[in-house]
């Protein structure tokens, strides 16, 4: 993709005004590391959002509010009780890319290998976006709308991402497979579990890389809900359910290998999440 002009706004209103002015030739950019992977024949005007005041991470009562321009390194280094995105950040490419890639960038233009959209589908984050007025959208709705625009937000600036703060009885599991330490993911799974009186009261299982867009496994979630919160609960899942999905194996994997890998990653993710939710080590 060719950039033929750039704009460096310092206010969100300036960025939004320029976005409206440029229309289809606008290219919203935060870290910009994925630009090389975007195929577009028409030249674009880059609107670099990194000078906007959208970088901090704030702890609220039941969630964390993350500025869309927080880098992956910021997410990795942030420490607070109930914070889990550092686990996703640690598995993200390498330090150089973590230093410049942003959370907003990773979820505003979803590639099949993107890590954070998978985690946010499991955590059910909320996005605050600037359109003609500020609006809040659940991550699932936002991604649903994105699909209509080839995996990218259109005519909006993502400002904040809210993710739940995990408390007692909640657990998060994250399992990602790569060919090399820096390779693109071949399968990524994120699991959120809530346990009440020893039973799983809420569970969300999301996967990416094996799909063009992150998906939830609703039948598997249904099978686990109400079950005893122990690692053996995995036996309640009918993995034949994977046959219903149009999986897209990566890097020369066969479909069978892809299904097997996904089964392992899902099991790992559930085991980690259940262990954490029940007070064990993850």
């Amino acid at each position: 993709m060719k950039i033929n002009d750039f704009f460096l706004p310092t206010k969100i209103s300036e960025a939004y005004a320029r976005l409206k002015k440029e229309g289809n030739s606008a290219w919203l950019m935060a870290g910009g590391t994925s630009t090389a992977f975007v195929k577009s024949t028409s030249p674009k005007t880059a609107i670099d959002l990194t000078r906007l005041p959208l970088r901090g991470i704030t702890r609220k009562s039941d969630h964390f509010r993350i500025g869309a321009c927080a880098t992956v390194c910021d997410l990795m280094e942030y420490k607070a009780e109930g914070w889990v995105l550092d686990r996703v950040a640690r598995r993200f490419v390498n330090q150089h890319v973590r230093n410049i890639s942003t959370l907003g960038g990773n979820i505003s233009r979803v590639f099949y290998w993107s890590d954070f959209p998978v985690a946010l589908r499991a955590l059910e984050g909320t996005l605050t976006m600037r359109t003609s007025k500020e609006s809040k959208v659940k991550i699932s709705e936002a991604f649903h709308n994105m699909l209509a625009h080839r995996g990218a937000f259109k005519d909006v600036i993502l400002e904040y991402i809210d993710v739940p703060r995990l408390t007692k009885g909640m657990g998060f599991g994250y399992s990602k497979e790569t060919r090399t330490s820096e390779g693109f993911s071949t399968a990524t799974v994120a699991v959120f579990v809530k346990v009440d009186k020893g039973l799983i009261s809420d569970v969300r299982i999301a996967a990416g890389s094996v799909f063009p867009f992150p998906m939830r496994f609703l039948k598997m979630e249904e099978a686990l809900t109400g079950e005893k919160a122990e690692v053996g609960c995995i036996r309640k899942i009918d993995f034949k359910d994977l046959d219903r999905y149009a999986l897209t194996p990566r890097e020369g994997m066969t479909l069978d290998y892809c299904k097997h890998l996904l089964k392992v990653k899902i099991s790992d993710g559930i085991a980690q999440a259940v262990a954490e939710a029940t007070g064990g080590s993850r």
Binding site: I3, L8, G32, T35, D48, T50, N94, V97, I100
Partner: peptide, 27 residues
């Protein structure tokens, strides 16, 4: 952005200069 041969430090952080547009270095 894989090999790090083009590493520079920008605002205290190591980055791959092959992934950074020149205009991102402004200021």
């Amino acid at each position: 952005g894989t090999c790090g041969a083009c590493t520079v430090i920008m605002d205290g952080k190591a980055v791959d200069s092959c992934l950074v547009f020149a205009f991102q270095a402004h200021g």
